Amino acid sequence: MDKSMVKGLVIGGIATVVLGAGAVTGYRTITTPQNADVRAVRELKETVVTPQKRCADVAVKHQAPVKDDNRVAGSVIGGLAGGLLGNQIGGGKGKTLATVAGVAAGGYAGNQVQKNMQEGDVVVTTERRCQTVNEKSQKVVGYDVTYRLSGKEGVVRTSYKPGATLPVKNGVVDTTAPAVASKS
């Protein structure tokens, strides 16, 4: 054999090995799935509690300010009326006793009437009343995704809601969130 033939055989052998290895790699790339089919997606939620201040205007009744705390006017007017009525009863010492009793009873009655009137005298004002209320809401924190890859089903958790497929890298489902295109 001459040298050129040996060179040709060596170069041909090397080319065959390189082409064969490339073909095997290409075949693996072609036969390895690039995506897994999504079968089901279930949202994972957590309850979020947010305190909020709620205020309302409320009508509040207060007793009106009293000008006569000791109810002197009611006692005096009642005493006079009671004394006049007591004076109409009996005669002599009985008349005097009836007048004194009428003054005492009338004074007490007048005092109580004024007290009831003062307690019933109210002023209505509007006051703002506030309280903290905890608002509860649901927040999606992830997704459990059931997928089918090479005839087998599996479940992965993702931070994003997938579409109809999930990407596969090196024969394993990739759960990395897709990059969001920036707006220029």
Rank of each mutant, 00 (worst) to 15 (best):
V10P: 00
Y147R: 12
G8S: 12
S184H: 06
R42W: 06
E135N: 08
K53G: 00
R28G: 04
I30S: 05
S4Q: 12
R157W: 02
A21E: 08
D57C: 05
E127D: 06
Q114S: 10
G151W: 01
A98W: 08
K152N: 08
T50E: 11
V145T: 14
R28V: 08
V58Y: 06
K7L: 14
Q63L: 13
V103Q: 03
G8A: 13
G92T: 04
R129L: 02
R39I: 06
V168I: 03
M5L: 11
V168A: 05
G171C: 04
E46V: 10
N111Q: 12
T125K: 05
G151K: 04
G12R: 07
D69M: 03
Q52D: 06
L44H: 10
G13V: 12
A81Q: 03
G151S: 04
T25G: 08
C130W: 12
D57M: 13
A56K: 11
V38N: 06
V18F: 13
V66W: 04
L166A: 08
P178F: 15
P162A: 15
N170E: 14
R42T: 11
K67S: 11
V38Q: 04
V122S: 06
L85W: 05
G82S: 01
K136L: 13
A21N: 10
V124W: 01
D57N: 15
R129H: 11
H62K: 11
G171M: 06
V100Q: 00
D121G: 07
Y143C: 08
G86C: 05
T158S: 10
V155M: 12
K3R: 03
V140G: 08
A181Q: 15
V6S: 09
G74A: 10
V140R: 09
K7I: 09
G110T: 04
A101W: 02
P162Q: 15
Q88N: 09
I11L: 15
A164S: 05
R54G: 00
A104V: 15
G90M: 10
T125P: 01
Q114K: 06
L85R: 01
S182Y: 11
K161I: 08
K3D: 11
V172N: 13
D121T: 05
V76W: 06
K45P: 00
A181G: 13
A40W: 02
T146S: 14
R28I: 07
G94R: 11
E46S: 05
G107E: 03
G13E: 13
Y147G: 07
T47Y: 02
G12A: 10
T50D: 11
V18H: 07
G163K: 11
A15N: 04
S159M: 03
K169C: 02
D174L: 06
V123H: 01
N116I: 06
T50L: 01
V172K: 15
R28F: 09
K136R: 15
Q63D: 14
G142H: 09
V156C: 13
M5S: 09
A21V: 07
G151E: 07
